[in-house]
């Protein structure tokens, strides 16, 4: 469904991803792991055709995605409905006066008829029904994220891309999101630097190194046992621990809750 082959991308000469190759099958739940600045968000933006590979190719359902292809209105209409991206900062995605309008935005663009029913359905499913008449700007970070997620899911996409979806969430909302994503029957690609929740978001992991290369593609549980790879990805570190009057050093993982 999604195929990236030898993809590289730089921002004004600054490397973001280098020579990345992987593919994602329909229905897979994939987690892209890497430290900040390793290129995770860039990969999602390439998959969402917001950025285009400067080297290599990106195919979606066999079609090579290029700037020219994204000028084909019919294709763009289909692509933007099928492949959706939840940005890390939900503020950047919100621009409608009410939560209802925010969720209805894409449906209106598609010219759907049963907009009200669909908005109500997704608002109810995400537990934001009571917020429908509120302005999305006055909501909390977690609520905004739910509104954006409802807006994207109301399009009934085939691929859901999530950029650090738990970065701004409290533990309870993180738990809710993990459960919610688990029951979704679509392709999901999630980025995170949080090893603690990576396993909850998918079985397959794509791990990026500090030098923006893909260093692991496979089972996440196996990856977490591989100290060499964890070190290469800079996802574990060593420092002194103090327990009462005892002190020792060992490698360990830090996640957002520890």
């Amino acid at each position: 469904m999604i195929e990236l082959k030898d993809v590289s991308f730089s921002y004004q000469g600054r490397k973001a991803v280098e020579n990345i190759t992987f593919s994602v099958q329909k229905g897979e739940k994939v987690v892209i792991l890497g430290i900040n600045g390793s290129g995770k968000s860039t990969i999602l933006k390439i998959i969402n055709a917001l950025l285009f590979p400067q080297e290599g190719t990106y195919r979606y359902r066999g079609e090579i995605i290029t700037p020219k292809k994204m000028k084909d209105r019919e294709f763009v209409r289909k692509f933007r409905k099928e492949v959706v991206l939840l940005f890390q900062n939900p503020d950047t995605m919100i621009f409608n006066p009410t939560v209802f309008d925010e969720i209805a935005f894409g449906l209106r663009q598609l010219g759907e008829k049963d907009i009200k029913e669909k908005v109500h359905y997704w608002a109810d499913k995400l537990g934001i029904f009571h917020l429908l008449d509120r302005s999305p700007f006055e909501l909390s970070g977690g609520e905004k994220q739910k509104v954006c997620l409802a807006a994207l899911l109301s399009l009934e996409p085939e691929v859901l891309l999530l950029d650090e979806p738990t970065a701004n969430l409290d533990p309870r909302s993180t738990g809710w999101l993990i459960d919610f994503l688990y029951q979704l029957d679509i392709t999901v690609v999630t980025t995170t630097h949080n090893l603690g929740i990576a396993l909850e978001l998918g079985e397959r992991g794509l791990v990026l190194s500090e030098n923006h290369r893909l260093i692991y593609d496979g089972n996440l549980s196996e990856f977490l046992k591989d100290r060499e790879k964890l070190l290469e990805a800079n996802l574990i570190h060593i420092h002194r621990h103090r327990h009462d009057d005892m002190e020792h050093r060992h490698y360990h993982i830090h996640d957002d809750f520890s």
């Binding site: 917001l50 209409r77 933007r80 409905k81 950047t92 995605m93 621009f95 807006a151």
Partner: peptide
């Protein structure tokens, strides 16, 4: 912001 608008715009 620009990318988000582009991403969400079907037309």
């Amino acid at each position: 912001f620009i990318l988000a608008l582009k991403s969400r715009s079907i037309k």
